[in-house]
């Protein structure tokens, strides 16, 4: 079966984001960008499934600007077989991404769509779930273990109360959590080879998807600076203070 791995180009996890002076968003000019770490885990998992003989072909897909090609090249260098860039300079919201992915999946016909549970830039945590709903497929989110067995997949999920294992019939959507695996480094020979792997460029219009934002960003600001605390003498004083603050 084929695995479709959506990947997103995001601000690098090592970079401290700065808000634009006009409050319209995060300043991304001259900032290091790389693959969303959760998506990196998804790529790694797909490769491991391929190495285990459960997956025959891995197709990476990204929705974003031309530069997202670099992110796709990273996926190819890690071990994906081919890539599709759905190019747009517009801001795409999870619903638009999910609609595009649905259209891509209709062409690729993957047995498994595996992607990060969320992207570290907007932390939406929506794309996988929306895609499952749009495609009417079973979903296993926050995966910490994925086992493909015949025409089903067992997904161990990290939930608030501990671990939950669900068995889904394929095709299915899986979103990856942090502890699923540790992604490999792409080796230098594979980076060189990745340049020759097929990378197709499309546009949202090719799939007939309207990506007009449904949401409006009114303002983006830095989180408030944490104020220094005070020491209290005893529990009574603490309770009194909490009451005065109106939180108890």
């Amino acid at each position: 079966m084929k695995a479709l791995v959506p990947v997103k180009r995001v601000i690098d996890y090592n970079v401290k984001p700065r808000v634009k002076a006009d409050g319209s968003g995060v300043d991304l000019s001259n900032v290091k960008m790389s693959m969303n770490p959760f998506d990196e885990i998804a790529v790694e998992e797909a490769i491991r499934l391929k190495e285990a003989g459960k997956v025959e072909e891995i197709i990476a897909v990204s929705v974003g600007p031309a530069k997202a090609q670099e992110t796709l090249r990273t996926a190819l260098a890690m071990g994906a077989d081919s890539a599709i860039l759905v190019e747009t300079d517009e801001e795409v919201e999870p619903l638009a991404v999910a609609k595009i992915l649905k259209a891509v999946a209709a062409e690729v016909e993957p047995g498994l769509v595996i992607l990060g549970k969320q992207a570290i830039d907007d932390d939406s945590n929506q794309t996988g779930q929306m895609l499952a709903a749009l495609m009417d497929l079973p979903q296993g989110t926050f995966a910490s273990k994925v086992e493909v067995d015949g025409d089903s997949v067992s997904v161990t999920r990290e939930v608030d109360g501990g671990l939950e294992t669900v068995k889904l019939s394929l095709p299915a959507i899986v979103t990856t959590d942090l502890r699923l695996n540790e992604p490999r480094y792409a080796s230098l020979p594979n980076i060189m080879k990745a340049k020759k792997k097929p990378l197709e460029t499309k546009t949202p219009a090719d799939y007939g998807v309207d990506i007009t934002p449904r949401l409006k960003t009114t303002n983006v600001s830095e989180p408030p600076v944490r104020q220094a605390g005070v020491k209290v003498a005893d529990v009574d004083e603490l309770v009194a203070k909490l009451k005065a603050m109106g939180v108890a």
Partner: peptide, 8 residues
Amino acid sequence: TIDALLDL
């Protein structure tokens, strides 16, 4: 290619 090498 140079960028990929330096990233690595």
